[in-house]
Design a protein around this nucleic acid. Structure first.
Lengths: 348, 348
DNA sequence: GGGGTGAGTCGAACCGGTTCGGCGAAGCTA
DNA sequence: TAGCTTCGCCGAACCGGTTCGACTCACCCC
């Protein structure tokens, strides 16, 4: 069922069928109806490969995310979902590519074999060879996250620095003086993972401004690591009364660690951070946090990419988001005797 | 940088370049080296579109999952991740298509425009028009989940019936007599969502065998719904001492509802179900559950699909998984006075 | 009535690969 | 040395669309 078959049955030439379907040249109403009828009868749909070859566009966007290896966070899931849906609204398909670095085979395929018209990159590092590579190639792409030199690029990012600062100020306002920071895994920090660095930066800065006593920790992306991390925190400084975290996946473990140490949240210990809203509402007490608007970010990234594809010479654009902190139930005033062990809990 | 360019620079014909690269016909060692050198210099990679057009294969698999609308569960995320990785190992890319039903435009594109060589379907319903459509077309596909008539198809599924039965028997063995079942949202049950139906079936069957008093509930895929659901359960039958759930996303809410009702898990109330291991370990106390091996299922689905693509006439195959229940900390013997309100908790 | 105009259609070239048939040279046998 | 095979390579056709230039015809106007 190719275009030649349609042409033959409609008694016209292949080019006429093409023009009738694309509307790029006028076709008489009669022939157009005849062609449409044949197309409907046979359920003809033009081959994506042939069309891509002919006009050089694949109508496909690449979504580059790090290889799972272990596990994804909920945030990443929301990104993927929203990107796919937003792309569908523009009639683009989405091709997934698990590539952490520029040299990955999957990444090379995406670009070298011209499988996609543009790409969205996730899990950006401050020095990201993928971003730079695409920039030098002038390949249409949008990053979810920003590198150390964001001015010239297309991206949508979260202002982790500001968000974590706000968390710290929130805690300081509540009277907390000894606060811990629970970051993403050490390996991510070392490879220059953006949110880990900027979050840490915001934490350090705000803590200095408020004269807080702080410690910072890296923590694996799972509950067990979270629990261990709390144990370390309370071991290193039992007078700690609050923590700020970027680590969604460890959150449940952090809560468990606190509970096992006899610290009641929020009476004895406050917890806050930057976490997707869905997760913040899953834990008990619900987490006071800057809710990561992952779905919105995915949508914005697609918007930007499509704009860039439609206007190849448009100047770079970006969106830096700073969602407000949602006050829930995991933070409270610092106790008067922060080092005291928690008393048995008799609240309902 | 097309194949003609390579041919010219290497002083051979286009077909020779093609054969040199594919190895489908012998090429002298000299010319092969010469060609390889030019290819390396220019960093040539053949166009995926052209290749797809020529040999009729796209080297792409479609992954069809329901439109997010609201949100995805952690399980789905794990599927997606493992499918992409497994596909990459076979040199296939993965194209995402958000389609709940056969008539979705995205789904039509995938098939009609021949964008993919095969498809993996998620979120299967007992009567699934997508599965049937693909079957009548003899289009290579593998379902993650099985329909009401699974014998003739290619699929990898979880034996929800058996798993939920085991959960019920586990609770019955512990002495629980009044048990609730927390299913996925009502809308999914009504549309014939497989796991919801088979899980419910297993629950009903095992409860009858053990002579338990049971109630079944549908629950939205979020924490707030979980909390509400527990309130309903305890309102409908305050003597309920345990629940079984399929609803990962509501789990945190279920725990919160129990805590607010003063029921301590596992002393006053036992919780179990079918949930991805990562989630089971996030809640406190950790959930005794049949861990959904999402990553393994994704991998197996790709294995099956690739096998089907390589051997178009191979007879249908499938994998029905029945992972063991992981005993964690959320279930315990039924209390002697199950209706009593929980006493203040003084355990460490 | 001749020439210009524009609508509608066609044929051919092209996108960038793959693959088939055949051809010339070299090597081997008789 | 003629004849046959084998090896290595080439040219051309093909996959299924898009697009450009040109052609035909009807119509209109001076």
């Amino acid at each position: 069922m190719n275009i030649g078959e349609i042409a033959r049955r409609a008694g016209v030439s292949r080019s006429t069928v093409s023009y009738a379907l694309s509307g790029k040249r006028p076709v008489s109403e009669d022939t157009r109806r005849k062609i449409q009828q044949v197309v409907d009868e046979l359920g003809y749909q033009p081959s994506a490969s042939a069309r891509a070859l002919a006009n050089g566009r694949t109508s496909t966007l690449g979504l580059v995310f790090p290889p799972a290896g272990s596990h994804y966070t909920g945030m990443q899931l929301d990104f993927i979902g929203s990107v796919v849906e937003a792309a569908a609204a523009y009639d683009y398909d989405v091709l997934l590519s698990p590539s952490g670095v520029d040299s990955d085979r999957s990444f090379q395929r995406l670009l070298g074999e011209r499988r996609v018209d543009g790409a969205i990159l996730m899990e950006i590092r401050l020095e990201d060879d993928r971003v730079e590579h695409l920039a030098t190639l002038d390949f249409p792409s949008v990053a979810i996250g920003r590198t150390a030199r964001p001015e010239s690029g297309w991206w949508v990012g979260l202002d982790h620095t500001a968000l974590v600062e706000r968390c710290v100020h929130h805690l300081a306002d509540l009277g907390h003086r000894r606060v811990a920071f629970v970051n993403r895994p050490e390996q991510l920090l070392q490879t220059g993972y953006e949110s880990a660095h900027r979050g840490l930066e915001g934490f350090t800065k705000a803590a200095a401004e408020r004269g807080l006593t702080v410690r910072t920790y890296c923590c694996g992306d799972d509950a067990a690591s979270g629990q261990t991390c709390v144990e370390r925190i309370l071991h290193d400084d039992p007078a700690t009364t609050a923590l700020v975290t970027l680590n969604e996946a460890a959150l449940g473990g952090l809560y468990r660690g606190l509970a096992e140490a006899g610290r009641h949240v929020p009476r004895d210990f406050s917890v806050t951070g930057v976490v997707a809203g869905r997760w913040a509402e899953t834990v008990t007490p619900q987490l006071t946090a800057a809710d990561v608007p992952a779905a919105e970010m995915g949508r914005l990234a697609v918007d930007l990419l499509v704009e860039r594809l439609d206007h190849p010479d448009a100047p770079p654009r970006h969106h830096l988001l700073t969602p407000p902190i949602s006050l829930r139930a995991s933070t409270g005033p610092a106790g008067t005797t922060p080092t005291a062990d928690a008393a048995p809990d008799t609240t309902a």
